[in-house]
Design a protein around this nucleic acid. Structure first.
Lengths: 148, 148
DNA sequence: CCTCAGTGTTAACTTCGGTTAACATTATAC
DNA sequence: GTATAATGTTAACCGAAGTTAACACTGAGG
């Protein structure tokens, strides 16, 4: 099993990739607000777990498994974020920050229940994927909702 | 600031006291599912923080400050627990377990918002105390609700 | 093609929260 | 009152996740 901390690194790499940038020790460290040494350590661990492909001074790339995990983690963040912001009325920045922490404390079954609840309360679509409401369409829909 | 872990020890001591038992290294360790050595370490830390009164081989007693903190922490657990169980429909045991973890990830402002939300959704009373809905009466009311 | 700034790596250390195992103290039973 | 069981303490250790500081590699400009 992957640790909470490693999951955050994974997610960060995914996000950087999504933005069509090369994930590098430096930009990961910036996003994670930690030292390059710390990133380096994590890369080794993630490599061992076959979640990324990487060798010293080389390219950092998520494996298929890593991508799946990163996505799932991001989706979980979104669910909690939406709940905090749209339902509880928490401020955007706080909600974003806190969602990560809260999600990490939640089991998958509970996240699923929350997903359904959020979906129902906010009237979003639902198809089957990671956390029930997390197909691309739905996520986009959430995002739009949240930007406003 | 007190750590998540220390907060759990504090709460455990409070609960044992509430049950008219002497908090002891052994029964704390049992409840916390950890070793006596670990309890011992925590007692030292809590003593330094003036949250308990304690000296080697002596009685373990919460200070006023410690009692306040323990209560607040318990109330927070209850709020999250109620949300998980009554609103999301999570199973009792899972909800109980998970509530602690989730609460630890939540800031006070968010807990307050959740408290209000839970209160509103479940139609509980509200007076002013720790987390808005957490006066003795209200907590009792929640408890009754939850036992069934 | 060589230098140097930027980037990446490593080693040694820190803190936190836990463990095991040996030991000390206290309390209980006889 | 003393042996023994129960309880509490301590020292030495572990792993996770981070740090600092020194060093190694790479690549882009002169």
């Amino acid at each position: 099993m992957i640790s909470k901390s490693q999951e955050e690194y994974l997610k960060t790499i995914y996000i950087i990739q999504k933005q069509d940038k090369q994930p590098r020790v430096t930009n990961i460290a910036e996003k994670m607000n930690c030292t390059k040494a710390s990133v380096n350590k994590s890369l080794k661990i993630l490599t061992e777990q076959k979640l990324i492909n990487y060798e010293p001074y080389g390219k950092i790339e998520l494996t298929e498994e890593g991508t799946k995990l990163a996505k799932k983690s991001l989706e979980a963040d979104d669910i909690v974020f939406l709940f905090l912001k749209q339902i509880l009325g928490e401020e955007k920045d706080i909600a974003e920050e806190e969602a990560k922490e809260i999600k990490m404390a939640m089991k998958d079954t509970t996240l699923n229940k929350l997903a359904k609840y959020v979906h129902q309360e906010l009237g979003l679509y639902s198809l089957d994927c990671g956390y029930d409401i997390n197909n691309e369409h739905c996520i986009d829909c959430m995002r739009r909702m949240v930007e406003t």
